[in-house]
Design a protein around this nucleic acid. Structure first.
Length: 166
DNA sequence: ATCTTAACTGTGT
DNA sequence: ACACAGTTAAGAT
């Protein structure tokens, strides 16, 4: 049985993202792809998610705000299927305000698992909701850019917009 | 300042 | 059991 979910495009000045919702909330957010396939709303599923419209409004305004370096109110996030470790890492990242940054080590420290710095990197890469869950605000300990699954261009762009100097 | 190495955890296979 | 990852700190050059 296929799980209940709907994909909806999110148009922003920086491109068209794609949001996927489950019955519990926003489950996934994807960067704009270069191929111009039309994203289609799965109305079958969409109709069975009563809050979807409200959630999507929140997603859209939140995304636009973060893309301009402002603080945003987020829709409910569905982290179903993620491990406890990942959830604690992502929760910790949500606390980082726009314009601020932390290192992988600091995150590891904050979740009381100081030696798991490397695993923290892994959790960041597994983050299904980039930008809104600010994995881009994590730098390496030497205050250098570090890596980014979604492409370093995005990481740099987001940080620059938020006024972070590298 | 740059390069190499060893240490360490979570996750997928 | 094994290999890898968006790391890090320490040591060598």
């Amino acid at each position: 049985m296929k799980s209940l979910s709907a994909e909806i495009p999110v148009v922003t000045p920086s491109g068209t993202f794609t949001a996927r919702y489950s019955e519990k909330g926003l489950a996934e957010l994807n960067f704009p792809k270069k191929d111009r396939k039309k994203n289609q709303v799965n109305s079958q599923s969409a109709n069975r998610i009563p809050q979807l419209k409200k959630w999507h409004r929140l997603t859209e305004s939140a995304l636009k705000k973060v893309l301009t370096g402002k603080k945003a109110k987020l829709p409910p996030l569905d982290w179903n299927g993620a491990t406890d470790f990942q959830k604690s890492v992502w929760r910790e990242m949500l606390k980082i305000a726009p314009g601020k940054t932390k290192s992988y080590g600091e995150i590891a420290n904050a979740i009381r698992n100081p030696k798991a710095v490397r695993a923290v990197g892994g959790a960041c890469g597994a983050n299904p909701i980039p930008v809104l869950v600010p994995c881009h605000r994590i730098l390496a300990a030497n205050k250098k850019i570090g890596g980014f699954s979604g492409g370093l261009d995005w990481k740099r762009k987001l940080l620059t917009t938020e006024g972070v100097l590298l």
